[in-house]
Amino acid sequence: MAHKSAIEKSPLQSYVSALVFGPTRSIIRALFEREEPDWITTAPALEEKWSACLSTLEGHNSEVTSVAFSPDSARLVSGSSDKTVKIWDASSGACLQTLEGHSGEVASVGLSPDSTQLASGSWDNTGHQGLGISSDRMWVTYNSENILWLPSEYRPSCVTVSENMIGIGTSFGRVWICHVERNKPNAS
Rank of each mutant, 00 (worst) to 15 (best):
residue 98 T to L: 11
residue 76 L to Y: 02
residue 135 S to D: 10
residue 77 V to G: 01
residue 143 N to V: 10
residue 37 P to C: 04
residue 84 T to H: 05
residue 46 L to C: 07
residue 62 S to L: 10
residue 166 I to K: 01
residue 37 P to H: 03
residue 78 S to T: 12
residue 176 W to K: 07
residue 155 R to H: 05
residue 88 W to I: 08
residue 59 G to D: 04
residue 111 L to G: 02
residue 79 G to C: 11
residue 141 T to E: 03
residue 139 W to F: 13
residue 48 E to Q: 15
residue 158 C to L: 13
residue 91 S to T: 13
residue 38 D to Y: 12
residue 151 P to S: 13
residue 64 V to T: 06
residue 76 L to C: 06
residue 44 P to K: 06
residue 62 S to R: 10
residue 187 A to M: 06
residue 142 Y to D: 07
residue 127 G to T: 12
residue 101 G to W: 06
residue 22 G to Q: 01
residue 70 S to T: 05
residue 154 Y to N: 06
residue 41 T to S: 13
residue 95 C to V: 09
residue 33 E to S: 14
residue 86 K to S: 02
residue 125 N to T: 13
residue 159 V to E: 04
residue 176 W to N: 02
residue 98 T to G: 06
residue 144 S to Q: 14
residue 81 S to N: 09
residue 120 S to G: 05
residue 78 S to I: 04
residue 171 S to D: 14
residue 121 G to L: 00
residue 136 D to I: 07
residue 2 A to C: 05
residue 173 G to W: 08
residue 21 F to Y: 13
residue 130 G to Y: 07
residue 148 L to E: 11
residue 119 A to H: 07
residue 32 F to L: 15
residue 100 E to C: 08
residue 66 S to I: 00
residue 155 R to W: 02
residue 168 I to Y: 00
residue 28 I to T: 13
residue 92 S to H: 08
residue 114 D to A: 05
residue 124 D to R: 01
residue 173 G to P: 03
residue 10 S to D: 09
residue 40 I to A: 08
residue 104 G to H: 11
residue 172 F to Q: 13
residue 74 A to Y: 12
residue 28 I to A: 12
residue 47 E to K: 09
residue 110 G to R: 07
residue 132 G to N: 06
residue 99 L to A: 06
residue 64 V to D: 00
residue 66 S to G: 08
residue 3 H to P: 01
residue 82 D to S: 05
residue 94 A to T: 09
residue 36 E to Y: 12
residue 130 G to E: 07
residue 147 I to M: 07
residue 150 L to Q: 09
residue 148 L to F: 14
residue 186 N to M: 09
residue 123 W to Q: 04
residue 119 A to M: 14
residue 14 S to K: 02
residue 105 E to Y: 11
residue 49 K to W: 15
residue 182 R to S: 05
residue 70 S to N: 10
residue 56 T to M: 06
residue 49 K to R: 15
residue 29 R to W: 05
residue 180 V to K: 07
residue 148 L to T: 06
residue 33 E to V: 04
residue 46 L to Q: 03
residue 186 N to R: 12
residue 4 K to A: 02
residue 10 S to N: 13
residue 8 E to I: 09
residue 151 P to V: 10
residue 21 F to E: 05
residue 81 S to E: 10
residue 101 G to K: 06
residue 16 V to G: 00
residue 125 N to R: 14
residue 2 A to M: 11
residue 28 I to R: 08
residue 3 H to S: 09
residue 20 V to A: 01
residue 151 P to Y: 14
residue 4 K to Y: 08
residue 15 Y to I: 03
residue 69 F to P: 01
residue 91 S to G: 11
residue 185 P to D: 08
residue 174 R to I: 02
residue 186 N to V: 09
residue 133 I to M: 07
residue 39 W to V: 04
residue 6 A to V: 02
residue 166 I to A: 03
residue 61 N to E: 15
residue 40 I to R: 08
residue 27 I to R: 15
residue 184 K to D: 09
residue 113 P to M: 08
residue 170 T to H: 00
residue 145 E to S: 11
residue 29 R to L: 09
residue 72 D to M: 14
residue 156 P to S: 07
residue 163 E to P: 01
